[in-house]
Structures are given as structure tokens and as C-alpha cells.
């Protein structure tokens, strides 16, 4: 009898957990889709990325006979550097807006399993960033494909049309989409720890943009290389490279893995802090 009950409980437990997990996910999805900011920010990720990429492409030139060495794929994806700022804002708002209003207490009252809430929020965030990133990257590459030949980057000069059939370009495209999603998770994890909107925005923008700038001005080549290898965005952006691979400080997927480790570390630290701290 007791055995039967225990078996019955074991049988229903995973199903119950799954249903509960889905309820938490659904609640978090309902939250994001019922505030106007979400739509604007998601659209802004795509629009800003494509706009900046297009501007960079429009100003790129390859004069005849000069033997230009540009990485047209990477150049066409420059807008990702701007789009990531909007991803960061979306990620910060995903939780800081609950801390600033005090709604986080309602959230944890309704859903006491804090890891579950964290996982659901991260999933919803990724679900918002991914489609926006796909549109952003596709739009940027399309602009490059249309405009690059007119600027001198022709097949005759050794620049075939940008195409996803080209392995390294496909890697750069998929990598850039993943890059934006990982930047979102990193910023989200940091915000869980920092909580305050203004402090979080400052921290994540610093984390994203400062290391590449510092790397430019560091006089020690050893330290410059270290920053390029281990800073989250410096390493992550290497995934966009399609030429000069032997000179990269870290391989393209390796660089993206560094960013992924940063994101995972931020999420784990955020989860622990969330669990230990009073809400």
C-alpha cells in the first residue's frame, strides 16, 4: 500500500513539476507581453542593428587596384555592436523593473521557487532576443550583399557576394545571433545581482563596452591579448571573423564559448544570490 502510494507519487511528480514549470513560464510570458516597452525594445534591436550596419556598409570603399583586405561579412555585421546595447536594456528591465516597483515580492509570493522564476525569465528573454537577432543579422547581411559590390567589393577584387552558403559567413551569422542572446543572458544575470535599474544599466554597459576600449589603449601586448581573449564581448565578437583567422586572439567558437561561460557564471551567481537574499 505504502509502496503503491510512493510509486504513484513518483509517477506524478515529474509531470506535476513540468506543469508547474510551464505555468511559471506562461506567467512570465504574460508579464512581458503586457507592457508596451517590450515590443519597442525588441523592434529596436533589429532596427538599430540593421541601421548601423547599413551606415557602415555605405561608407566602406574598395578602390580599384589597392588590394583591400576587408572582412566584408564582419563589416556588414558591425551593427551588432550597437544592437547589443538594446539587448542589454531589455535584459536589465526584465527584472530591475520588478525590483524598482516592488512587484518582485508579488512574483515570489505567487511563484516561491526562485530558481524556477529565474529560469523562466531567462527563457522568455532569450525567446524575445533570438527572433529580433535573426532579423537584425539577416537584414545586415542582406544590406551587405546588396551594397558591397557597388562600393568596389566585387568578385573581381576577390569579394564574392555575401552568402550563407559560404561556411565562414554562415558561422558569423549564426554566431552573431547567439552572441546577442548570450549578451542578454549575461546582462540579465548581472542585473539579478545588482537589482537597481540605473546601477545595472551602468554595470552591463561597462562590461560590454569598456574592455574593447581599454584593450585599444593598453600598452602591454600581453594584457591586450588577455583582454581580447577573456573579456566577454571582445572574445564573443571573434565569431564574426571570416578572414585572417590565424591572427585572431581566440578561435571564433572559442570566443563565443568564453561569452557563454560569462553568461552562465552571471546566471548561477544571480540564482544563488536570489535564493539567499531576502526579497
Amino acid at each position: 500500500m505504502a509502496q503503491a502510494t510512493a510509486a504513484g507519487r513518483n509517477a506524478t511528480l515529474p509531470a506535476g513539476r513540468a506543469r508547474k514549470g510551464l505555468a511559471v513560464l506562461r506567467a512570465e510570458w504574460t508579464k512581458v507581453r503586457t507592457v508596451p516597452e517590450t515590443g519597442w525594445l525588441v523592434a529596436a534591436i533589429a532596427v538599430l542593428t540593421v541601421a548601423v550596419s547599413t551606415a557602415v556598409i555605405a561608407t566602406a570603399r574598395c578602390a580599384a587596384g589597392t588590394g583591400c583586405t576587408a572582412d566584408t561579412t564582419k563589416l556588414s555585421l558591425t551593427g551588432v555592436l550597437a544592437g547589443q546595447a538594446v539587448v542589454a536594456m531589455l535584459a536589465v528591465l526584465a527584472i530591475s523593473s520588478e525590483y524598482s516597483t516592488g512587484m518582485i515580492r508579488t512574483t515570489f509570493t505567487a511563484m516561491p521557487r526562485r530558481f524556477g522564476v529565474l529560469a523562466a525569465k531567462a527563457t522568455v528573454l532569450t525567446g524575445l532576443v533570438l527572433p529580433a537577432a535573426i532579423i537584425a543579422v539577416a537584414g545586415s547581411l542582406l544590406a551587405g550583399r546588396e551594397m558591397m559590390p557597388g562600393n568596389g567589393f566585387t568578385a573581381a577584387h576577390g569579394f564574392p557576394l555575401l552568402s550563407l552558403a559560404h561556411g565562414p559567413t554562415l558561422r558569423a551569422a549564426v554566431g552573431s545571433v547567439l552572441y546577442l542572446a548570450l549578451v542578454g543572458l549575461l546582462c540579465f544575470g548581472v542585473t539579478v545581482i545588482v537589482r537597481d535599474s540605473a546601477a545595472a544599466i551602468g554595470t552591463v554597459l561597462g562590461l560590454i563596452y569598456l574592455p574593447p576600449i581599454v584593450a585599444l589603449f593598453v600598452s602591454s601586448p600581453v594584457w591586450q591579448r588577455r583582454i581580447e581573449r577573456y573579456a566577454p564581448t571582445s572574445a564573443g565578437m571573434t565569431v564574426q571573423n571570416t578572414t585572417g583567422m590565424s591572427h585572431l586572439p581566440i578561435g571564433p567558437w572559442g570566443g563565443l564559448a568564453v561569452l557563454a561561460i560569462w553568461a552562465a557564471a552571471a546566471l548561477i551567481a544571480g540564482g544563488l544570490v536570489l535564493r539567499l537574499r531576502d526579497a
Partner: peptide, 21 residues
């Protein structure tokens, strides 16, 4: 006062309802 100002009352109750199935 612990509400996100951009969301309607009905939608606030809706996410709470969804969290409880």
C-alpha cells in the same frame, strides 16, 4: 503600489492567474 505602471489591472491579474494554472 507594487505594480508595473504600464500594465493594466486585468493583465496584472492575468499573469498571476497563469502562474497558478
Amino acid at each position: 503600489g507594487a505594480l508595473q505602471p504600464g500594465r493594466s489591472a486585468r493583465n496584472h491579474l492575468l499573469w498571476l492567474a497563469h502562474s497558478q494554472g
